[in-house]
C-alpha cells in the first residue's frame, strides 16, 4: 500500500487536496499547486513532509534563478579565495559544489519532499529546463562528471502564483490541484487550529465579518487566511466582545493593508451601519 497524506494537526487540507497529494505520491509525479494568495500553497509542502515523516528540501525560485541553481552551484569564488592561502587544498572541485533544494532531495538517503516555490517567478522557459531532471530524477554535475540519481523518488511539490503561464510539456508531467479559497466552514476549522481557546461566538462573528469584507468589490487586495488569524489574535488581546464587531471593524489595519482599500472599507462600513440603523 502507498503512503497516505491526511493533513496534519495544524494544516487542514480539503478532501480533494489530500486526494491530489496521494495521487502524486502513488504515481511519483510532481504536484503543481496553484491558488489565491494566502491559501497555504507553500505550507502544504511542510505539512506533507511532517505528516509523512520525511525531510523537506526547499528551493525558492527568484526572477534570476536558473534551472541548474536548484540542483547545484559551483562556488568558483570560494575556490579562488581559498587558493590564496596554503592551508587548504583546492584541487578537489567537489568541495566547492553546493547542492540546491532539488539536488539535495535527489541525493537524499531517505524518501523526501522537495518544494519548488513560486516557479512562475523565473524566466518563461525555466520549467522546460527542468523537464529531464524531473522525469529522470537525476542530474549530472558538469564540473566533476558525477551523476546523482535519486534512490527514492522524492515527492516534488511546485507552487505557482500565475504570474506566467507554464509550458504545456511541463504541465503534462504534473498532477495539478487548485486550492480554492476556503469555505466559511473550512475556515472555521482552520481558525480553530490557530485559536483553540477563543469563544465560538467571537470566531463566528469574525468569520462572517471577514467574508463580508472579502466580497467588497472595491478591494484591490482582499484579506486572506493569515490576516484573519492575525485579526482574531488582535481582537482577543484587545478584549473585544463579539457583539461589538457587528457594525464596526476594530483593528481594521490587521485585515486591510492598502491605504486605498482602507478608505474604501471605511466608506462601505459607513453605509452598512446606516442601513442597519434604519
Amino acid at each position: 500500500m502507498f503512503e497516505h497524506f491526511a493533513g496534519t494537526e495544524n494544516y487542514i487540507a480539503s478532501a480533494e487536496l489530500r486526494e491530489a497529494v496521494n495521487v502524486a505520491l502513488a504515481l511519483e509525479r510532481p504536484l503543481l499547486i496553484k491558488g489565491e494568495p494566502g491559501t497555504g500553497k507553500t505550507l502544504l509542502a511542510s505539512a506533507v513532509a511532517e505528516a509523512l515523516g520525511r525531510p523537506l528540501h526547499t528551493w525558492h525560485v527568484k526572477s534570476t534563478s536558473k534551472a541548474r541553481d536548484g540542483l547545484y552551484v559551483y562556488d568558483a569564488v570560494q575556490r579562488l579565495h581559498d587558493s590564496r592561502f596554503d592551508d587548504k587544498s583546492v584541487s578537489d572541485i567537489r568541495a566547492y559544489i553546493r547542492f540546491g533544494g532539488l539536488g539535495e532531495a535527489f541525493r537524499s538517503e531517505v524518501p523526501s519532499v522537495a518544494l519548488i516555490d513560486e516557479i512562475d517567478k523565473a524566466d518563461l522557459e525555466f520549467p522546460n529546463d527542468l523537464l529531464h531532471e524531473l522525469d529522470a530524477m537525476s542530474f549530472k554535475v558538469d564540473e566533476t562528471g558525477d551523476v546523482h540519481s535519486a534512490k527514492h523518488r522524492p515527492l516534488v511539490i511546485i507552487t505557482s502564483n500565475n504570474e506566467k503561464e507554464l509550458p504545456d510539456a511541463f504541465l503534462r508531467r504534473c498532477i495539478f490541484h487548485f486550492i480554492s479559497f476556503p469555505s466559511p466552514e473550512l475556515m472555521a476549522e482552520i481558525v480553530q487550529v490557530h485559536h483553540p481557546d477563543v469563544e465560538q461566538i467571537l470566531i463566528e462573528e469574525a468569520i462572517s465579518r471577514f467574508y463580508w469584507l472579502r466580497e467588497l468589490p472595491e478591494l484591490r487586495k482582499p484579506p486572506a487566511t493569515s490576516e484573519l488569524v492575525d485579526w482574531i489574535s488582535a481582537l482577543v488581546r484587545g478584549g473585544i466582545k463579539a457583539e461589538s464587531i457587528t457594525d464596526r471593524v476594530p483593528y481594521l489595519g490587521a485585515l486591510i493593508k492598502k491605504e486605498r482599500d482602507l478608505k474604501a472599507t471605511q466608506r462601505a462600513l459607513k453605509s452598512y451601519a446606516s442601513r442597519r440603523r434604519k
Binding site: F2, A15, E16, E19, A20, N22, V23, A24, A26, L27, L32, K34, L171, R172, C174, I175, F176, H177, F178
Partner: peptide, 27 residues
Amino acid sequence: ECIEKGLVAADLGRAYSVGRAVMVKHE
C-alpha cells in the same frame, strides 16, 4: 496508471477527484 494502482477503485467520487488532478492542468 491510476486505475492500475487502485487509486480509483469503483468509487465515482474518487474517479472525479483523481481524474481532475490528472486531466486538468489549469484552473
